[in-house]
């Protein structure tokens, strides 16, 4: 085989391999999603974040508007301090609710923002004061059982 054609094929091979790696990083991995345009940072304190992880999506009305940047434990208030990075294009009012939801029954957890009615928008470094914790299945089940038990106690007393 001609040496130049061989060189050409090896060049194509190397470029294709590098492109595949690049494509994997961008399309399959999360290399890009960490720096989507300009963002502003807000924090929210939760008593229980369940299985929320850094890089989890922040959604409002089902649309991804940002990502969870960092999760820390505040040893003064014994709460979880979650730092959210929200896209600059989406300003939210000051009294926005931050809830932790689960996608599906066993899916990943995400932060859902529900806009309030305040005129003032959230600014960089602000803290969201209205939060709702993650639903912990065990807690719900035990509460349900407790309620059931007390109900049957009441009905016995009524008899």
């Amino acid at each position: 085989m001609e040496r130049t054609t061989m060189d050409l094929w090896v060049g194509i091979f190397a470029v294709a391999g590098a492109a595949a790696l690049f494509g994997l990083a961008l399309k399959v991995g999360n290399l890009t999603s960490s720096s989507v345009g300009d963002t502003y940072t807000v924090t929210a304190a939760f008593e229980n974040i369940g299985g929320l992880k850094p890089r989890a999506p922040v959604k409002s009305a089902g649309v991804v508007v940002g990502r969870v940047d960092n999760i820390q434990f505040d040893s003064k208030t014994f709460e979880a301090k979650v730092t959210l990075k929200v896209d600059k294009r989406y300003p939210f009012p000051k009294d926005t609710f931050a809830n932790i939801y689960t996608a599906g029954l066993l899916g990943e957890q995400y932060v859902g923002l529900e806009a309030g009615g305040d005129e003032q928008p959230l600014k960089d470094g602000d803290k969201i004061s209205h939060t709702q914790d993650a639903v912990v299945l065990e807690k719900m089940i035990s509460q349900f059982l407790y309620n059931k038990a007390s109900e049957s106690d009441d009905s016995k007393k009524a008899e």
Binding site: L21, N30, P57, E108
Partner: peptide, 15 residues
Amino acid sequence: FWSQMQANVDFQADI
């Protein structure tokens, strides 16, 4: 399909 993939595949740890 793509968003779940991107949320769970880490560049450093996986690729």
